[in-house]
Design a protein around this nucleic acid. Structure first.
Lengths: 142, 142
DNA sequence: TTGCGTGCAAAGGTTTTGCATGGCA
DNA sequence: TGCCATGCAAAACCTTTGCACGCAA
């Protein structure tokens, strides 16, 4: 397994990065976080290697890249066989605590369809991030 | 006119930047483009000043900041006082042509209520921008 | 053996920050 | 006069790139 595109090799680092993301399906990581994880394991993988690998995985469609905002680094997440693959997985970011929350429900699909049919606009889940305040921070406020 | 938040001054540069954006309502500019414009006029405004001013204008809600792509610089656009100040008004930005589309309909209100009630997340209309491809660009593609 | 992958360091470009100076109120 | 704003340059930051070496097939 771990098949990559033709004309490329399966190296140790390459497999480990993909496996790490695979084992953490549903979570997203920055290049730095991935680097830190392997360093903690005693394995060192160059930052450039991680970026190059993530870039390829994104191109190949195995991984999604999210740009949350220009100040924070990009997030990468394995796209398994479930929801995120169909592009129906959105993200909400809390402006207070910075938590990134997955949003995947019937309502958003309906909304997506409505925008597409009535407004002629095809939303891009990879790029669209909903900003607001999460429940925990709302509780703390009051 | 040109009122800024209390505890701040109205300087020449500050006014000129805001006026430039105001006079070009509906268009968006990068920090560099603004800098170039003033240089062409014979006025020199430091890049840092432009960034600081844009940052404040964004915070004050007079200007919206858009991140089209993590590689390209951020775009700033005058929003004005007429619309979008009281919520219920969102924006969709076409990733291809950059057009900013006004979105205000019953469906989005319903969707936001759902997110609030079921997911405990209160969305922020000022900050949330829907990204995607507009109808015109979809036509061009096919 | 061939050529892609890796690692390191340096470069790239945008945005922020430090600090002395200048200008508004 | 007291602050805030400005300008310049340097720093900070994420990401990409150049180059020599290593490793997969």
């Amino acid at each position: 397994m771990g098949r990559t595109k033709s004309g490329s090799y399966n190296t140790k680092q390459s497999c480990e990065i993909l496996n790490f993301l695979k084992e953490n399906e549903g979570s997203h990581f920055t290049s730095q976080e991935i680097s830190d994880y392997f360093r903690a394991q005693g394995t060192n993988i160059g930052q450039a290697t991680i970026y190059r690998r993530l870039d390829r995985l994104t191109t190949d469609g195995l991984v999604n890249k999210y740009i949350i905002d220009e100040k924070s680094p990009a997030c990468y997440e394995y796209i398994g066989t479930k929801h995120c693959k169909h592009g129906n997985c959105y993200h909400m970011k809390c402006e207070k605590c910075g938590t990134l929350i997955h949003l995947s429900c019937e309502e958003i699909n309906e909304f997506f369809e409505h925008v597409s049919k009535e407004h002629g606009f095809v939303l891009d889940p990879k790029r669209t991030v909903f900003y607001g305040i999460c429940d925990k921070c709302i509780e703390q406020e009051s």
